[in-house]
Design a protein around this nucleic acid. Structure first.
Lengths: 339, 339
DNA sequence: TTGAAAGCGTTACCAC
DNA sequence: GTGGTAACGCTTTCAA
């Protein structure tokens, strides 16, 4: 285990000079620089994280978190992750500021970001809305040397340094594969219930799902309807969907408000022979799986989505090492027995 | 963020005294002790991990790892985890020593442990064989103040401080649930192919599976055979199993050597209408899933089994905080689409 | 362009 | 019983 001190003494310079070279702060004679780099390589120098972190504590780093879906139960697990990482980072003199917005109003999310910037955050983790203004804001922060990591939903065109979350297309494909697996010899006429057309992840899931449906003769989609993540709306649209399409024998809920839709299924007595697959593991969905009405739910590791972005930002700010750009969470399948 | 220094100055004592109290080293006047504890509580003192680790580096901690299954491809992912955590801990001046044994010979595993103890390890992570001698050895280490964490397979009667790995009973239940889900209206006559009767996890999976089968009228078990985790043996026993039981329409592989068994299925042309479920995600299994012969595989987060025990031991030795006793890894279901 | 020194929080050791 | 001090590895600031 080589240290800066060691390199310094071998190179016949002070620790400060080695630090300047290793961290590219400039202002070092090219020859000394070359010598130092050579020695560092020869010793396979790896900076000591404890030392770095201890030293970084004097900065009192502040990390900001912005999310949509204040009242969306999905985010409860994300928040549990946030809480844990907050406790962990708090003992490194690093503070976390969280803001969440209830709706998908662009202005509100941007305002939340601005608020955090004003309170002096050094980096931002955001579950972003898929809107141009948000992209622009992230790019603005990048110019101010405030790095951003997106989570849950990505904005690939922005200057965010990384993304942590699901590969939604693949998770839609997984649902289709699961439906086929559960019904190997049955023609499936599927009703798809989305959340909101403005939310990228829901539409991407449906794209992946459609692709997969297209490649299986026995699968077909009757209709796609939207519930705005609202239980009452969901009850209504599913009721109408099932009445209009008596041939439907499978339902795919791509978003929240699943229990409302399931009530409609029960109301019409259409449970029998109905295959239902949902996403995420909110309490009401767990109940419906235990009950047997929903056969499976496909999840996206929400807890990790809370923890990892902040961990990566903290590491980036302290040790300086660049995070992986795309960090897909696992696509987890839960059925009655392993939920 | 309160520090020892702060507490010391408030209590009117030195940092050394505070350290003695907080870490229960004894030799402090009861009154001073009480005063210090009170202040620490009032300030909600949380030790600073970076400081602790930095200080602990002088000890040059050594962690030992012992595993069975040297040539078992399942352990490749475990080893990947080990490699990553080794890199992480190496920059804290902490070294990892790994020993793995090819067979299930009790003496070999105990010898491996002894070797590591002789090279001065401060703690042990072990994927233990289910044998009395190993239990005794772990208890011996405990007396020598060398803490042990079991992973992959537990020894609940030993003095190990924690376990990281699968809930095997539940994972067997999950397989049964999955079989039922895939075949909602079909009577399933299942052939069960275990690894070795001496390996606890395989037998536990089968117990869980049997429980679940018993509670579903449409599921039944034709026979249970053993393959010793060997491909050639597996080919033979499955061949015989399928010939003896022409009514078998489902196979459950509870252990390794799955590809050998699948060859037998193909040889006899019994693929059609056969439901096959396996465990773990070794390359040959992935191939068979993509091919469609195996419908699903139920996994146990091997990477985490490599990382977490060492992380927990390092934390335990440095910060001193007690790990959770039982750390079940997730039961993950993989099908063609999400593998 | 470089060096010296202080500081981050904890622990260990020696002295009293 | 207690205090003082050095040490862990790194960054930062001031001075030269």
């Amino acid at each position: 285990m080589s240290t800066i001190k060691e390199i310094a003494s071998l190179a016949g310079v002070s620790r400060g000079t080695v630090d300047r070279v290793l961290n590219k702060r400039g202002g070092v004679h090219p020859e000394t620089q070359a010598r130092i780099l050579e020695i560092a390589k020869a010793l396979d120098y790896k900076p000591n994280k404890a030392g770095i972190v201890l030293s970084a504590q004097r900065k009192n780093l502040k990390l900001g978190v912005v999310m949509f879906g204040t009242n969306n139960p999905f985010f409860e697990d994300v928040k549990a992750g946030l809480k844990d990482i907050e406790a962990e980072l708090s003992c490194y003199n690093c503070d976390i500021y969280v803001k969440s917005t209830p709706d998908f109003n662009e202005k509100n999310q941007i305002e939340a970001i601005d608020d955090l910037v004003n309170s002096g955050i050094n980096a931002l983790a955001i579950a972003p809305q898929n809107q141009d203004g948000v992209v622009k804001k992230i790019d603005e922060l990048a110019k101010m040397q405030i790095p951003t990591i997106t989570f849950n939903s990505d904005l690939p065109t922005s200057k965010r340094i990384a993304y942590v979350g699901s590969n939604y297309r693949k998770s839609g494909e997984t649902v289709a594969g699961l439906m086929k697996l559960i019904n190997p010899h049955k023609n499936l006429i599927i009703g798809v219930v989305g959340g909101a057309q403005s939310v990228l992840c829901h539409t991407e899931r449906i794209e992946g799902f459609k692709d997969m449906v297209a490649s299986h003769d026995s699968l077909s989609i009757a209709d796609v309807v939207w519930n705005n993540d609202d239980d009452v709306t969901c009850y209504d649209v599913v009721l109408k969907l099932l009445e209009t399409h008596p041939e439907i024998n499978a339902l795919y809920f791509t978003a929240g408000a699943i229990s409302g839709g399931c009530k409609a299924v029960k109301k019409l007595g259409r449970e029998k022979g109905m295959t239902i697959i949902a996403h995420d593991k909110v309490p009401s969905t767990v109940e419906l799986i235990k009950e047997g009405l929903i056969q499976a739910t496909v999840c996206q590791q929400p807890y990790i989505q809370g923890v990892k972005p902040l961990q990566m930002l903290f590491d980036y700010l302290t040790t300086g090492d660049q995070p992986e750009e795309i960090n897909y969470t696992d696509i987890e399948i839960y059925i009655k027995e392993n939920i």
